[in-house]
Amino acid sequence: MDGGQYVEVAPGVRLWAEQRGAADAPALLLIMGAQASGLGWPDELVDALAAHHRVIRYDHRDTGRSPWAFDERPYRITDLAEDAIGVLDGLDVARAHIVGMSLGGMLAQLLIADHPDRVSSATLIGTCALSTTDHVRPDGARVPVAELPGIAPEILEEWAKPVEDLGPEAELDRRVAHWRLLSGGGIPFDAEYFRALERRIIAHTGRYDTNGAHGRADDSGMLRTAELAGTEVPTLVVRATAEPVFPPPHADHLAQVIGHDTRIVEIPGMGHALPREVLGPLADAILEHTVQFRTAP
């Protein structure tokens, strides 16, 4: 079951979505990060998951083929989480396993907290907890959330630079350089792999610019400290050893915050990116997690 379609998630808001896998297999929704098209989930990973699931990936607002209209119709980050529910509704999916990366991992937490009846299981990658609960180190010391390791300085420096329109090839160069930083250095960087990924995303989108809408959206009202602590949604947290945006203590903190039925899987060398080398281990980890909690779509 291949091919894209449009799903109305709110009045006048139609998002592009794609499904792969058997229609009667348990649904699995992939939720990408900020300013990232659904095609940011590499085909190799999607196909591995689609051998066992009805896999759905989609373009957030202001990405890919979905509407680019933030300036005319601003929204909150929490609205992006409700969009995910809108995608499930539009595709007649009652419950789904969800996998979220980066901002997508935060949106997944909002779904765990606000719509647990729609979530069969959750996998959280490269993200931080939407909670004010202290982190407890192995030695028992308590660490306030604000004192957990921050984003690598070189990435903050890159994010602070204005994005200039110097043409599509220069934009590809910029995106590849960005992926090099996000990859974290734990695995040899394959520039051509990421260039091909971004070239495909640009072709899919039909434009090569980016508007930074998710960075401008209202991010208030996202904390879910009590709701996450009380959830019964089975959750897997991926600890990426070379993660430069939310370094490994964040994965441990996230598992502590959710607590109930939460497991951690470590992927050596993984950063804040999805190079070929991590796709097999990541697919295996997700499928080992979801097989325990599979339900009909």
Rank of each mutant, 00 (worst) to 15 (best):
L223F: 15
R200M: 00
G215K: 14
A273R: 00
R276M: 11
I258D: 00
P188T: 13
L228N: 01
G269M: 09
I202H: 14
V237M: 01
R276P: 10
D252L: 08
P281D: 02
A285V: 07
A226F: 08
P248E: 06
L274T: 14
N211P: 00
L274Y: 04
D209H: 15
T205A: 15
T295P: 01
P188K: 14
L282F: 04
R216Y: 02
A226R: 11
A203M: 09
R200A: 13
P234C: 09
D261W: 03
E232C: 04
A283N: 06
V278H: 05
F194K: 02
Q292T: 01
V278A: 06
R276Y: 05
R294P: 04
E266H: 01
H260S: 12
A240D: 10
A203K: 05
I202V: 15
T262K: 01
I267T: 04
L282P: 04
R195L: 13
V245R: 00
E232M: 08
H250C: 07
T231E: 02
D218V: 00
A285D: 03
I264C: 07
L287G: 01
H253E: 06
V245I: 10
I187S: 08
D284F: 12
R294Q: 15
T235M: 03
G230S: 07
G206V: 15
I264T: 09
D218A: 03
H214W: 12
D261T: 09
D261V: 00
Q292G: 06
P268V: 12
T295W: 09
A296G: 09
M270G: 06
G280H: 08
R207I: 12
N211A: 10
A203C: 08
I201S: 13
L236M: 11
H260C: 02
A296K: 06
A229T: 03
E277T: 10
E277A: 14
V265Y: 07
A229E: 01
R224P: 08
R216K: 14
A273T: 13
T241S: 11
I187L: 14
V265G: 04
A273C: 06
A196R: 14
D252A: 10
T231N: 03
G215N: 12
V278C: 05
V238R: 00
D284E: 06
R263I: 14
F194S: 01
H204T: 09
P247R: 06
A203P: 04
T235S: 05
E192C: 12
E277H: 07
G186E: 15
A285S: 10
A217I: 06
G185W: 11
A226Q: 11
R294I: 00
L279T: 05
H204D: 07
T262G: 03
A191D: 09
R200C: 00
D252R: 09
Y208R: 14
L223Q: 06
T295H: 14
R199I: 02
E243V: 07
D284P: 02
